[in-house]
Nucleic acid binder design. Structure first.
Length: 383
DNA sequence: CGGTAACCTGGGAT
DNA sequence: AATCCCAGGTTAC
């Protein structure tokens, strides 16, 4: 009865690590000649010393209500982390390859598979997890003005906002536009494969996210061939624009953390393939703009249902988009993006199983694009 | 300026 | 089996 997302559920670790023919050929056409000048000489001349990483799980000081892996990693913030065990996810942060899992009491532990520095890995992890921000405190505040949030929060504890690398986040969300999870993942995997290989876990290969330098090597044609469709030119276009920034594109993106949200959004929207929604995702998930609200079809549904019922049936236009964002911010405050994240997750078909059935909304059929917009004709459930 | 129509692609629905 | 429709939007008229 419940409609699970097959594209998601069917996803399997592809056993054969060796890529198919066409894949390899496209890659070799653009042989990546390592410009020696670009490689920082951080590696000491010791190749004799085995880089034996410690082989044990280390507890993080985070309870399940502060961080739920299943509600944080496979719910749309990143497409780079893979499920490698029952309650275990694996991915990279900068040059570090690590796994996270819930242990008996629900707390989270981490395991470093590969890293140039284990102490740096831990710091990078805490940063990546926004560990300094107390989710429980935020949610208490949200719950005070919103009974529905309070109720949902009971079932979806630990849905946290990550602090990703801006370049990585940007490329992922350009891929996400008007697309589905399965294909987004495939595209992100392709881009990722251009980065330095870091290791394999649970049948998945992991690569450091490629630098802009490396990304600039792929052509639009190669991306189209890899299935990017019209987003191919967005990727190459954006990489080109970033590469032309005086202090480098990565630095330019990082500098957007210091701007006010509207300015950061405007700046991001100058990049090809980046519109209001993608810009908000980047702002929220990588640029510390905690009140950015990515307004996609799901959030639009939420907003018209619970926040701005007067807009029910209308089409999602840029102006209404910002109106929705404003509504969220005035209701939830400076961390509105974190509230939106929970409400968004509650709408995901893949998470409905966690919720009592009274939270399930009848999926409205195609609202039958009428002139007046109000598509509630025969579903008998239009508030 | 605000509202529409293309845009790649693969899988599911009709 | 052949079409139609859609998916975490953006861009071009």
């Amino acid at each position: 009865m419940h409609s699970l997302k097959p594209s998601l559920a069917m996803k399997r670790p592809r056993p054969p690590p060796s890529p198919p023919l066409s894949f390899a050929s496209t890659k070799q056409t653009s042989s990546p000649p390592p410009p020696k000048s670009l490689h920082q000489p951080k590696t000491p001349p010791i190749s004799s010393k085995k880089p034996k990483p410690h082989t044990k799980w280390v507890p993080l000081n985070l309870s399940q209500s502060e961080l739920s892996l299943p509600l944080t990693f496979p719910t749309g913030q990143t497409f780079r982390w893979k499920q490698t065990g029952p309650l275990q996810y694996t991915g990279t942060i900068g040059p570090h390859l690590l796994s996270l899992k819930h242990i008996q009491n629900g707390d989270v532990s981490y395991f470093i598979h590969s890293s140039p520095s284990e102490s740096a890995a831990k710091l990078a992890l805490l940063d990546f997890l926004n560990a300094g921000i107390s989710l429980a405190k935020l949610w208490d505040a949200f719950s005070e003005n919103d009974p529905r949030f309070s109720e949902l929060a009971k079932y979806l504890k630990g849905a946290r906002v990550l602090r990703q690398d801006p370049v990585e986040c940007l490329v992922q969300f350009i891929c996400s536009s008007n697309n589905n999870i399965g294909r987004i993942t495939k595209m992100v995997d392709f881009v990722s494969s251009l980065g330095t290989y870091l290791g394999s876990v649970g049948g998945f290969e992991f690569h450091e996210f490629p630098s802009l330098e490396r990304l600039s090597v792929v052509s639009e044609e190669e991306l189209r061939q890899a299935g990017f469709g019209y987003r191919a030119k967005y990727i190459t276009g954006t990489v080109n624009v970033l590469q032309s920034k005086p202090d480098g594109g990565a630095q330019w993106l990082l500098s957007l953390r210091k701007l006010d949200l509207p300015e950061a959004i405007d700046a991001l929207c100058t990049l090809p393939g980046v519109g209001p929604k993608v810009a908000a995702c980047i702002a929220l998930f990588s640029l510390d703009h905690h009140h950015a609200i990515p307004v996609d079809t799901h959030v639009w549904q939420i907003a018209t249902k619970y926040l701005l019922p007067e807009l029910a049936g209308a089409r999602l236009t840029p102006k209404l988009c910002s109106r929705v964002a404003d509504a969220f911010v005035s209701k939830y405050g400076e961390y509105a993006g974190w509230a939106q994240t929970l409400l968004f997750i509650a709408e995901l078909p893949s998470q409905k199983a966690l919720l009592p059935s009274h939270f399930w909304d009848i999926k409205e059929k195609k609202p039958a694009k009428t002139k007046d917009g109000n598509g509630c004709s025969n579903d008998g459930n239009c508030s």
